[in-house]
Amino acid sequence: MNQFQYVQPTKQKAAIEALVKNANAQFIAGGTNLLDLMKHGIVAPEKLVDINKLPLKKISHENSSLRIGALALNSEVADNKLVLAKQPLLAQALNAGASGQLRNMATMGGNILQRTRCPYFYDIALPCNKREPGSGCSALAGFNRMHAIFGYSDKCIAVHPSDMSVALAALDVTVVVAGPQGERQILFTDLHRLPGDQPEKDTTLTRGELILDIIIPDTPFAQQVHYLKVRDRASYAFALVSVAAALATQNNIITAARLAMGGVAHKPWRLSETEKSLVGKPVSEKTFQEAAEIAMRGAQAFTHNAYKLKLAPNILVEALKTAAGIA
């Protein structure tokens, strides 16, 4: 572990400036991901800018939207009455992630920006384009049981590991960020990127940008929801595949749908085409099977993750059935 400086600004501006001034400075929130990465020698920031003193913990409901501060803890959000009432899908996804102890430390911003769990990213003795651009992707022809089936490139086939982000991708969320140039809003689905030629870049955030809030609008599809996660043990494991499903129905006809998958791509994988195909269809297993077929178009597996081609559609149907109340 490198020697590093540590500051704990109380003003947002100071925090952002600290990052602008030092190209090797990094924000730290709960530290549950960043410290691991530092201990493994994957990242070595010269300066840690602890943002925990910034007033970014608030959870409120205003202007028909739920607004959650970036520093709200995963466990607080999962248990929050407003969240449970307005956006139960988010609470479900949060509770499916990590462990009680970790959720007590992990923040919303940190969860969104957590890095991949690809074993080659974690072993600094091995090539990894995400860690060391140009060194090669070891997973491509290596152990790729956990890896992507959508949207990968020949530079990187890692997946984004967050559960919460899968729910956020489905819920038409906007992220409020502040940077040296001021504040801006980003659609959550535009925040994470596909690897392309720059797998080292996880997101579209620019240097020094700080996540302030996430905004989840009230929608007609916020109550018929289900987050389904399949993992290697009953709890405390990253998703093999997960699905966030949200539906609005009228007289058994689907009027709106939102769907996202986790564990399948470099970013939470929103299924817009599939959503469109569901609108106007009756709630039925058949409808959902057809949707699953559409969802899986273009999926391609590697040596060890072909099971995802079957698991993903299976649980997509199951999540939709549960959301619709016909499971």
Binding site: P119, Y120, Y122, D123, L126, S138, G142, F143, A237
Partner: peptide
Amino acid sequence: RFGRYVTADFAN
């Protein structure tokens, strides 16, 4: 290819 374990932590 490397002779290294790729599941060498409690997450894997």
